[in-house]
Amino acid sequence: MEGVKQFDLAVTPLREVNRYLHHDVAASGVERVKILNADGAHSIAVGLNVPLDIEVDGHCGYYLGGMNQLARITVQGNAGPGVGENMMSGSIRVKGFASTAAGASAHGGLLAIQGDAALRCGISLKGGDIVVGGSVGSFSAFMAQAGRIVVCGDAGDGLGDSLYEAVIYVRGSVRSLGTDARFEPMKASDYEAVRELLDAAGFEHDPRDFKRVASAKSLYHWNVDANQEY
């Protein structure tokens, strides 16, 4: 097939594949890259800066698609820790589950996880969007500064601890909210945002089923009377 390039990680070293994606693919006319036998390798398709469709077959190790710009990456299996960490733009879709710290510190783009995401999903999020079809583990969205997280399932303990301006939408139950996180009423703009993100991720839910979690902003200013108790 023209415009499609295939690599098998059982045969080709990952470094060679990533080098191709960084340097050679841009001028090649290739629009789709398929990577077979991920077999838990770390750093598959990291640091890309090309509008390209990449399909990864199998389960990935740490940092799949880290620092991604423009590329649209789909993982047919599960993703290891830090999938899409520091993503700038583009998209990453994980068909299975994602391990800890999915989308950590992502500045932009969309991370869509069909299964569950483990602990610390969206930690320190800086503007990216994360949509999780399943549930997220404890301490998700810790210190998240900007961006949106949609959780179609449940959330664990300490959701949104020390949140800044990021907003979380949860469909299921929340085991506990973190310090300074609070439920807020959904407005028309929230329903629109959830609709937009669910459509982008390809999940069918009613936005009316979601609750909004955002920062109470009580940590924004030092309060000497709080005596370090929040």
């Binding site: 036998n37 077999d39 838990g40 390798a41 770390h42 199998g58 389960h59 190790g61 740490y62 599960n78 290891g80 820790p81 391990s99 800890t100 483990a118 602990l119 583990g137 404890s138 301490f139």
Partner: peptide, 28 residues
């Protein structure tokens, strides 16, 4: 532990249960 900082992956098949810190040790 409660914070689950240290990784673990389990693969349960008909013939075995296999556990490793990372999937790359189970892939074969």
């Amino acid at each position: 532990d409660a914070f689950a900082c240290k990784p673990a992956v389990v693969a349960e098949a008909d013939d075995y249960v296999a556990i490793a810190s990372e999937f790359r040790s189970l892939a074969h």
